[in-house]
């Protein structure tokens, strides 16, 4: 049966919504695609038309949250921020959007964003990574870094970011405050490194 683009959109949105509910209630590992199909009112086969796997489904939730976080960041930034403030605002805006998914997100991120070489790379994960790094590059450009960061700087940034995500996923402090402190230090460290030794161009507020 052919269905309208609008109906497709609705189905997709419903799967994402029900999927998130079930992941939160049961946990990512315990929840099956069948469970999700049933509660979305679809046949399991139909669900696969939208999301080829449970991982893809979950990672799509993550990407969408991060996209909204990026929009929040652009809206919230005032243009007066230093580099470290911008990076903090960017990462924090993303985490705030991811917050509802936090109860089940650990294993999803681990599978889709793992930096280790894998047989099958998760395309959604790879896309999310690329989008995130593009945004970082954009932020750097706004602070006068004319050249794209080289692979060392990129790898370093990404490791820090994954570290923050991993810590955040398991952070049991109220509102993940401990993650905020960690972010602050991680970002300062990164900014210091890419600004070269001594002079700390990203941190004019701490003069």
């Amino acid at each position: 049966m052919r269905i309208s683009a609008q109906a497709k959109q609705e189905n997709r949105a419903r799967i994402l919504e029900k999927g998130a509910e079930l992941f939160i209630a049961k946990g990512f590992e315990e929840c099956t695609t069948r469970d999700i199909a049933v509660s979305s009112g679809l046949a399991t086969g139909t669900l696969f038309n939208y999301f080829p796997s449970k991982e893809t489904l979950a990672m799509t939730m993550v990407s969408e949250a991060l996209n909204r976080g990026r929009e929040d960041f652009r809206r919230r930034r005032t243009g007066e921020e230093g580099l470290d403030e911008d990076l903090f605002l960017f990462i924090a805006s993303g985490l705030r959007r991811l917050r509802p998914l936090r109860p089940f997100i650990g294993p999803v991120l681990e599978r889709s964003l793992s930096p280790f070489p894998r047989k099958t790379v998760c395309p959604e994960g790879e896309a999310a990574r690329q989008e995130h790094l593009d945004a970082v590059h954009e932020i750097l450009a706004m602070h006068g870094f004319t050249k794209a960061p080289d692979y060392v700087a990129v790898t370093m940034y990404w490791s820090l970011y994954l570290g923050i995500l991993a810590f955040w996923a398991g952070d049991d402090s109220p509102n993940q405050q401990a993650t905020q402190a960690l972010m602050d230090y991680s970002i300062r460290m990164f900014v210091q490194v890419i600004s070269g030794n001594g002079a700390d161009r990203g941190e004019e507020h701490a003069d």
Partner: peptide, 21 residues
């Protein structure tokens, strides 16, 4: 000396505490 929390950190504290900037 200037205190250590930059404004982006302060904003997150406010969103968590008041749900507003």
């Amino acid at each position: 000396q200037a205190p250590p929390m930059h404004y982006s950190v302060v904003r997150e504290v406010f969103l968590d505490e008041f749900g507003r900037e």
